[in-house]
Amino acid sequence: MRPISYSRVADVGTAVGTVTADPASAFLAGGTTQVDLLRIYVEQPRRLVDINDLPLRDIEELPNRGLRIGALARMNEVAEHPSVIDRSPLVSQALLLGASPQLRNMASIGGNLLQRTRCTYFRDVSTACNKRTPGTGCAAMDGVNRGHAVLGTSDQCIATHPSDLAVALVALDADVIAEGQRGRRSIPVHEFFLPPEDTPDIEHPLDHGELIVDVEVPPAPDGSTSLYLKVRDRESYEFALASVAVALRVEGGMVVEVRLALGGVATVPWRARRAERMLTGQPATTENFAAAAREELAPAVARGMNGFKIELACRTIVRALETVAPDGAR
């Protein structure tokens, strides 16, 4: 690890001002990504600004039956908070299926959204990676890419977005609240995660020094049942091969409203809008679930070793929908 200097700040204004003024600085929250990537030279800030004393750990209930979650609240404390379990079980489930208990005690909600991909080439500074070092190429294209994305890819990057929480937030239309030099703004979560296209190094719209302060989570649609289903190589402490966040409302056998998002298969937390459109107003049957899943995965691009994810994602979608559909599915 390169030498770094360290500062500790106690209020948001100082935090934002300090990092904004120093291009070689970065925020330090839980540190689970930051310290890891510093040690392997993937991220190389010269100065860390410790924000753990900022008053951003509260979890509040909003009048719309939603939640406001402070950016520095830890994954475990959010997952086990009675208000979150009551109002947003999807968020609780997604958090508890991520990382390990120790990491969840450390990792913050803001940091979870900003965590970097687990692509082995991104993490290996001796290899080509357009996300880490723009213009160098992508070693994953013809490399060991079993874990890589099939949706939202470009010819520059196929790195999978690793967050489970973000998939639940995308399904729920959450907002990311950020504060920067120009003030506070609210960013819809589906606009927060940027697909790689020609600039895979640009992953979100935040300015340098702009800080996530809260995440606002609206309630799931009235009358819906929700589920976060994660499929992975081992039962615990593993990233998703495919995951699905779903909230489904069925009346008289017909899909009235459905929210569907995918993890583990895309370069960003993936809102499955094609499938949602196809299902809405249709009978809640396994046949329709499967057709919608195929429609969502139709634009998928497989490379080398990750072709299995297309079928796996389809089956995971169907399983998730069947699980939350009243009386299963027909």
Binding site: Y6, L28, G31, T32, L48, N52, L103, N105, M106
Partner: peptide
């Protein structure tokens, strides 16, 4: 694994100064 303020955490990803 150690405890910091009573919570189990990973000391390898924790800076001592923090």
């Amino acid at each position: 694994t150690v405890w910091v303020d009573g919570e189990r955490v990973l000391s390898c990803l924790t800076l001592a100064i923090a």
